[in-house]
């Protein structure tokens, strides 16, 4: 039978596990090979994921499973995402959904965020986790590559209430050679659909010389959906097969964002220590509404939350935020 979770739509069998190697067919049912197995659990601030417009300053429990359905040449988590998941299991944690949620509550977390690998490869476990989280009043968010089928996108939307979707590039050539997928269209469809249902932020890792020429076009795509979608432009430090790539030049990438900044009020350029493009400025009067400090690589933190009730402290313009911030 064919898997209907991501756009690879792999043929599955009892011992045929598909591209992600995380599912098998049990009769006419797709089942997880490694349910309730998690690669990590950690306490983080929501800004470090990154989510900049979701409950600013809140504490979340981050977790993930193993494997991925992409083959990004620059993968930063290859030691989890590209390993054979069967060989990973002895390093994993076995947690029931109840246990993970209990932990989140005890650790003072207000949300659980799936941020290590692609959630589409572990949907049944995440459905169960979402059920338990809802009972405890814990919100769920995730990072995703957006390569889900329309049905799976609806499933994702039923599990998570906030998303950071990675839009790595628009050109099919780039997506083929660098990401390993034939087309970006499913991702664009997912972004459009999830933006209708939930809070989303979009992330684009910039590989200089490969996709930095597309920044204007990506900004136009986001603006056409909703110009207030926050966009994270990451200065990527390539790993894995691209480990020896030249370090991206910060000034040059920042210059390439000049046009995009006229279309999108919430553009953030970061993933390097000391970035000064991590603050939220009021789209109306440019006053600082939320100030952050960036350490790069998952180290961003809230410095000052200045927009009580989601209003600009100077002109009272509405600042898009899901939930309240820490004041």
């Amino acid at each position: 039978m064919r898997c209907n979770y991501c756009e690879w739509r792999c043929e599955l069998g009892a011992e045929t596990y598909g591209k992600c190697r995380m599912y098998y067919a049990d009769g006419s049912t797709v089942k997880e090979r490694f349910p309730d197995m998690w690669s990590t659990y950690e306490v983080s601030r929501i800004e470090s994921i990154p989510f900049y417009h979701v409950y600013p300053g809140s504490r979340c429990l981050t977790t993930g499973t193993s494997s991925c359905n992409f083959d990004c040449k620059y993968c930063s988590n290859a030691f989890i995402a590209k390993q054979d998941p069967a060989e990973m299991q002895h390093k994993m944690y076995r947690f029931t959904a109840q246990k993970l949620v209990d932990m989140a509550v005890r650790l003072g977390c207000t949300s659980i965020v799936f941020n290590v690998n692609e959630p589409t490869v572990s949907l049944p476990s995440l459905q169960e986790l979402a059920r338990e989280a809802a009972i405890a009043g814990i919100r769920m968010g995730c990072l995703t590559n957006g390569y889900s089928t329309p049905d799976a996108t609806e499933l994702l939307a039923s599990i998570f209430s906030f998303f950071n979707i990675s839009l790595k590039g628009l050109a099919n050539e780039y997506n083929r050679t660098c990401i390993g997928i034939p087309s970006v269209e499913p991702i664009l469809r997912t972004i459009r659909r999830l933006a209708e249902r939930h809070h989303i932020e979009v992330t684009t890792p910039v590989v200089q010389g490969a996709n930095d020429n597309e920044l204007d076009e990506i900004a136009r795509f986001i603006a056409d959906i909703d110009p207030e979608i926050p966009w994270h432009v990451l200065r990527l430090l390539p790993e894995d097969e691209m480990k020896d790539a030249v370090y991206p030049n910060i000034e040059q990438i920042n210059s390439a964002l000049i046009g995009a900044r006229t279309r999108l009020p919430y553009i953030y350029f970061h993933n390097f220590v000391g970035s000064e493009w991590v603050n939220t400025l009021c789209p109306e009067c440019s006053a600082p509404a939320i100030e952050r400090f960036s350490l790069g690589c998952g180290g961003d933190r809230l410095q000052r939350f200045l927009c009580a009730n989601g209003k600009c402290p100077v002109c009272s313009h509405n600042i898009r935020i899901l939930g309240e911030g820490t004041v």
């Binding site: 930063s76 430090l237 220590v273 350490l295 790069g296 690589c297 998952g298």
Partner: peptide
């Protein structure tokens, strides 16, 4: 200034 071995630069 490396975080989890990701080389961010220097401080």
């Amino acid at each position: 200034f490396a975080r989890n071995h990701y080389n961010q630069g220097t401080l």
